[in-house]
């Protein structure tokens, strides 16, 4: 980020930017840089994702300010709206409070990552700088003569249609691949209706109508007390296995109705 900023400063000093755009840039750019740094340094993954979302929205505003309206809006719809939302979805699934451990799992990963990032940043900076610095931007008005969207559409579906189709084929392949890998092949998933039929067709018929409910009614009907069968024995199926394993089950003895004689004793 900071490297890109340097190039943009150069571009600003060359007077290629109008005044309101310059104000917008100087307000927004420091915020973006701060957010980018924060994204790397905050501990919680969700906070990181939020900063990234902020960066994406700010970039979209930059695009719009540069008269690339379509690109800016699509950036928000696709990246902020869909991609980041999927990220958040996964992060939330993984765990509410899981702060990632800072220990390196692959040796030398951090150094390699820093080196590669700096390399790519340098590459981009030099490329863009060679194309733009000290060379006034021309041709935007010609490109947008029929409207920004129409201009992009014309290019995408004429000159670059081959590249466009290849990229979309690649994306579809990737999506299908992910689906194939994530789904285990099941021949026939039994539906609720069939399960109900199965309960009656095979197995213990006493379970067919559902398991017995927990609790001794009128005295204690919470889930931590097993229910009693008509003969007074405990209905073991009336309690959750999880509670049993945790040892959070109360004995139903003390809630049993006692006969009058016992009470008088």
């Amino acid at each position: 980020m900071p490297i890109n900023l340097g190039f943009l400063v150069a571009a600003l000093q060359l007077g290629t930017t109008h005044k309101p755009e310059a104000i917008l840039f100087w307000v927004l750019a420091p915020l973006v840089v701060l957010a980018a740094l924060a994204m790397v340094f905050v501990k919680k993954a969700v906070h990181s994702a939020l900063f990234l979302a902020w960066i994406m929205i700010s970039l979209a505003i930059f695009f719009i300010a540069q008269q690339a309206l379509f690109l800016g809006i699509v950036q928000i719809v696709v990246y902020t709206g869909a991609v980041m939302m999927l990220f958040l979805f996964i992060l939330m699934l993984v765990g509410v409070d899981s702060s990632d451990s800072l220990k390196e799992t692959i040796k030398g990963q951090k150094t390699a990552a820093i080196l590669i990032s700096v390399g790519i940043g340098g590459l981009f900076t030099s490329l863009i700088a060679r194309a733009t610095v000290a060379k006034p931007a021309v041709g935007l008005d010609t490109a947008n003569v029929a409207g920004n969207v129409q201009g992009i559409a014309t290019l995408l579906f004429t000159d670059y249609v081959w590249a466009f189709e290849v990229v979309s084929a690649l994306l579809i392949t990737a999506a299908l691949g992910a689906m194939v890998l994530a789904h285990s092949q099941k021949n026939h998933q039994i539906t609720q209706k069939e399960l109900s039929a199965l309960r009656f067709r095979q197995g213990d018929k006493s379970k067919a109508a559902g398991l017995p409910a927990p609790g001794i009614y009128a005295l204690h009907n919470a889930v931590d007390v097993p229910g009693l069968l008509p003969d007074g024995s405990i209905a073991t199926q009336s309690i959750s296995k999880t509670l049993e394993a945790r040892g959070e089950i109360l004995s139903s003895d003390k809630f049993e109705l006692q006969s009058n004689e016992e009470v008088e004793d």
Partner: peptide
């Protein structure tokens, strides 16, 4: 009136969902 007005509405709506998702996450 934007040339991409309808897409703009979609974009704004998709940012609005962040409110709901973050509310769910941050409640702990």
């Amino acid at each position: 009136d934007l040339p991409v007005g309808v897409l703009y509405i979609l974009a704004v709506a998709s940012v609005g969902v962040y409110g709901i998702v973050l509310a769910g996450w941050s409640s702990g």
